[in-house]
C-alpha cells in the first residue's frame, strides 16, 4: 500500500512567486524568508516522495463564483499553471496522480463527503508556491506527481475547521488503502495571519502565528475545535486559510515529530512560515 512519509505546512503568498521570478530571493528583504525553506527542500531530496497531495484554495483563478464547491478533488493527468492576470509563468506543468485522485474521491463519497471531481482545471499560486518552496523550480519536470485538493476559503460559508480535519482522516485512509508502493507527502497550505480586505487590511498577528506553529503538532484539538469566526478574528479574513493545514494534520498520526518550523514577518502583507512533520 502507499505510504504517508510526512506532512508539511506552508504559506502560499503570491509575492513569493514574484520574488523567484524576479530573482530577488537573496535580497535582504527576502533572504530570511527563503532561508527557512532550505531544510524542507533537503528533507524532500532525502525522503524522495512520489506524490505530493497539495491542499489549497483557488483565488479566483480556476474557479469563479458561478459555482462554488466546498471541496474539490483533482483527477486530471496534467495541470497547467493559472494565468492570474500577469501572463503565464515559466514553470513546468504538473503531472497529476489521477489514480490516487479517483481513489480518494471514492473514499470520500463512501465516508459521506460530497466533493466536486475536476479533470480539466488549472492550479494557481496556492499550489505553485508550496511546490516551488519545497522542491525548487525544475528545468523540465517536477519530481513528483500531484493530487490537488481545493478547499473553498473565499466565499462564505467556508467549511468548518472540524470538517477539514474529518476530510484529512479520509485522506489518510485513502492513501493507506491505495494499491501500490508510492511514497506520499501531504502539503497543507495557506496563511499565516493576513487580511487583504476592509479597513483592517494589513492586520497581522505574530503572537497567534507563533502559537499556531508551536502547538499545531502537539495540540491540534485546540485548532480543530475553534470556530471560523475565531480564525477570522485571530488570523485575519484571509488568514483563515490556515484551516487547510488541518487536513494535513489529521492525515498524520496523533503522535508526530516536529522536524522543523520557520516563521518570518512580513512576507508581502502576511505572516509567513512552514512546518515539517513526520509520524512518530
Amino acid at each position: 500500500m502507499a505510504e504517508i512519509i510526512g506532512g508539511l505546512g506552508t504559506s502560499h503568498v503570491p509575492s513569493i512567486c514574484v520574488a523567484l521570478d524576479k530573482g530577488i530571493d537573496q535580497t535582504p528583504q527576502w533572504k530570511p524568508f527563503f532561508d527557512g525553506y532550505d531544510y524542507p527542500k533537503q528533507w524532500m531530496k532525502e525522503h524522495k516522495p512520489d506524490i505530493a497531495v497539495v491542499i489549497f484554495n483557488d483565488h479566483g483563478n480556476a474557479m469563479f463564483l458561478d459555482r462554488v464547491p466546498t471541496f474539490t478533488v483533482g483527477v486530471a493527468d496534467t495541470y497547467k499553471p493559472s494565468d492570474e492576470g500577469w501572463g503565464p509563468r515559466a514553470i513546468p506543468d504538473f503531472a497529476g496522480a489521477e489514480d490516487l485522485g479517483w481513489h480518494f474521491a471514492d473514499k470520500l463519497v463512501e465516508r459521506h463527503f460530497d466533493p466536486m471531481i475536476a479533470r480539466e482545471i488549472t492550479v494557481d499560486h496556492g499550489c505553485q508556491v508550496p511546490m516551488e518552496l519545497f522542491f525548487g523550480r525544475p528545468e523540465d519536470a517536477w519530481p513528483v506527481k500531484i493530487l490537488p485538493i481545493w478547499v473553498n476559503t473565499v466565499q462564505f460559508p467556508i467549511p468548518t475547521p472540524q470538517r477539514c480535519w474529518d476530510m484529512g482522516r479520509v485522506l489518510r485512509e485513502a492513501i493507506e488503502s491505495f494499491p501500490g508502493d508510492e511514497r506520499v507527502v501531504i502539503l497543507g497550505t495557506g496563511g499565516l495571519s493576513h487580511q487583504l480586505q476592509g479597513a483592517r487590511a494589513g492586520f497581522l498577528n505574530e503572537q497567534a502565528d507563533r502559537d499556531w506553529l508551536a502547538t499545531f503538532a502537539s495540540d491540534p484539538d485546540k485548532w480543530r475545535s475553534m470556530s471560523r469566526e475565531d480564525y477570522v478574528e485571530k488570523f485575519g479574513s484571509e488568514g483563515a486559510e490556515l484551516i487547510m493545514w488541518l487536513v494535513m494534520r489529521a492525515a498524520m498520526q496523533q503522535e508526530v515529530t516536529v522536524k522543523h518550523t520557520h516563521y518570518h514577518l512580513p512576507a508581502s502583507m502576511t505572516g509567513a512560515g512552514c512546518i515539517v512533520l513526520e509520524n512518530a
Binding site: 479566483g60 466565499q155 487583504l196 487590511a201 494589513g202 502583507m269
Partner: peptide
C-alpha cells in the same frame, strides 16, 4: 473580492500594499 479585483491591479500595475493602504 480582492482575489478577483487583483487582476485589475495586475493591469495597472498597482502593488498590493498600495491597495491595503488605501483600504486602511
Amino acid at each position: 473580492n480582492l482575489f478577483f479585483i487583483l487582476k485589475i491591479s495586475a493591469i495597472d500595475p498597482t502593488p498590493i500594499i498600495a491597495i491595503g493602504a488605501a483600504q486602511a
